[in-house]
Simulated scan of single mutants.
Amino acid sequence: MNDASGPKKHTAESFAAELRRRIKEGAKGYEAGAKLPTLRDFASSEEGVARGVAEKAIDRLRAEGLIESRRGSGSYVRASRIPRTSPGRLASKQWGRGLSIQAHDSVDPPQAVDVTVGDVVPPSQVAEALGVRPGDVVLSRYRRYVRGRRPVQLATAYLPTDLTRGTRIEHTDTGPGGTFARLAEQGLEPTRFVERVVSRAATPEEISGVDGREGLALRREGSLVFEITRYAYAGDRCVEVSLMVLDAESYELIYTFPADGGVS
């Protein structure tokens, strides 16, 4: 029996439940973005939770996506997930008004950094979709997205060079409405999109970066990501293929569509 005058003796399960409750209720010190006490703090506090118990509890909540660890800094309550709402984000009334796709999803959307534009030989499946010959170059637009200081998405868009030469699509800043607005100015407004979404473990390159590019800095190998391949069509022609890798713990994917199978 526990001593009623002393601290409750927690198990990993009971302490995880207590921390989970505090986070979900937004208790003081457990609001989104708050830094959690250290294992030593938990052990020396009134709760007197053993370091091993606290460590297992925090590991459990980290696996649930409620807590994130930052190298050399500690553990933090994870901010709310980023909504990614389709198909509204791709509607012409969004980018046609000069607004970004990301701005549709949130009032505080992730920001594109490390934008790199140049000619590359694309992956074979991209070349096939764009209708270019194997070995031919296309325009590549690479972006890394961050929310606050946290990387949340890597994205590379590929477009045929005959649609990009001499346009702002070749610039790091494509202007109001982005790439789709620039395509529309050429009479190639996207009229249909296809997205393929799979969940998988992140690769080491996606976690740590490659070729001088930073990665998603995920907590460990085996962390899950959403891999999204988006095809943009103007009529029957595929005018862009975008390959995206999203931190699965940072996003929620929301799809809205009518029951009759049409486009909402």
Rank of each mutant, 00 (worst) to 15 (best):
G222F: 06
P151F: 00
D59Y: 08
A54E: 00
S250Q: 12
V225W: 00
G166L: 06
E206K: 04
E195Y: 03
V115A: 11
E25Q: 15
K8E: 12
L139R: 01
V117T: 07
L159Y: 01
L90H: 14
D236L: 03
V210M: 05
G131N: 03
P87R: 05
T179H: 09
G262Q: 03
E249K: 12
R141P: 13
V194F: 04
P151K: 00
G166S: 06
A129S: 15
L188M: 14
E25V: 13
E68M: 08
A4D: 14
Y255C: 06
L154Q: 05
Y233L: 04
I228P: 00
S199T: 07
T38A: 15
A201S: 07
D108L: 11
S69C: 07
G209Q: 05
Y142P: 05
P204I: 04
G148L: 11
A4F: 14
R60C: 10
P151W: 01
V77D: 01
V121A: 08
A16G: 10
A201T: 10
T156L: 11
V197M: 04
E189Y: 07
Q111V: 08
E55W: 08
R150C: 07
A201E: 10
E13T: 12
G33C: 08
G166N: 07
I58K: 01
S250N: 12
R230A: 09
T38S: 15
L19S: 07
A16N: 13
R70S: 14
K35Y: 08
G98M: 01
E55H: 11
D211W: 08
A43H: 00
Y30I: 06
L159S: 02
G48I: 01
E206M: 00
D41Y: 15
L224A: 13
I58T: 03
G88C: 03
E205A: 05
P134Q: 02
L154Y: 02
E249W: 09
V113Y: 11
S140K: 06
G26N: 09
A259S: 14
L66C: 06
A155Q: 12
S73G: 08
E205F: 01
A57E: 10
E55D: 15
A54M: 05
V49Q: 02
G29E: 14
M244H: 06
A4I: 14
S223A: 09
C238N: 03
V113A: 12
T172A: 15
A201C: 06
E221S: 13
V239D: 02
V132W: 01
V146Q: 08
V138N: 01
A32M: 05
P204H: 12
R149K: 10
F15N: 11
V53S: 02
S140N: 03
S69K: 13
Y30W: 15
A248K: 03
T174K: 02
E128K: 14
I169G: 04
E240L: 06
G177M: 02
